[in-house]
Amino acid sequence: MKRIAGMPESMSAVVTHYCPGCSHGVLHRIIAELIDELDLRGRTVGVASVGCSVLAYNYFETDFVQAPHGRAPAVATGVKRARPNLFVFTYQGDGDMAAIGTAEIIHAAARGERITAIMYNNSIYGMTGGQMSPTTLMGAVTATTPYGRSEENGRPYRMAELLAQMPGTAYVARTHVADVANIVKTKQAVRKAFEAQIRGLGFSMVEVLGNCPTNWGMTPAESNRYVLTEMLSYFPVGEFKDVTKEALAGVHA
């Protein structure tokens, strides 16, 4: 009989701690499905960051190491350099990657580390109770911008576009998981990012726009609408760097 639905083997059969309606779980599932489909489970080391996804290691049936806040790309670098046959990915939030871990992500990308960084951008510090992050939109009310993010906080910046400029990157994209069609597109992008690492083309990264219904003070449906309207208007989806096709055509050979 053909199996048409079920849990990916790389996903643990446990209840997650994520809030109802949170999209962290959707992104976990995409990653787990791809680890299965690309037959990577036996040689994967995931690197968990500090944020709501700090316990990601409980949800994947792969080896995992937990990094200090922001340092996941450095930890992943150490893992990959020590054992180059491993498939190594980081799973980081916007605060983890774009604030405290800026140096580590930029330099991992610049060096072209053969790792994949997945960023869940919910434009807020979810785990610590909803403070402003570097990607919080202008005007947004958070615990540390009670009157709305204003010019004195600076403006949100775009990580995917920034990393696309780094010489060592092979694939960089932004997607979102606020509707079904784009969940499918996110999976396609993460697949390309994983394949870029497997083929040794360089550093790959996918920034995934997601919600945080709890700290945005919205219902899950409202929060997905916020992603589709407000976030998408500031953070365009797309592929900002893709050398995979050139590599296939032999241009980078």
Binding site: V45, V65, P68, R71, T77, G78, V79, K80, R81
Partner: peptide, 16 residues
């Protein structure tokens, strides 16, 4: 890129 990065690379390598 820094001692912070270096020690965390060490953490990653040691983990293997």
């Amino acid at each position: 890129e820094s001692e912070l990065a270096a020690v965390n690379m060490l953490l990653g390598a040691a983990a293997t």
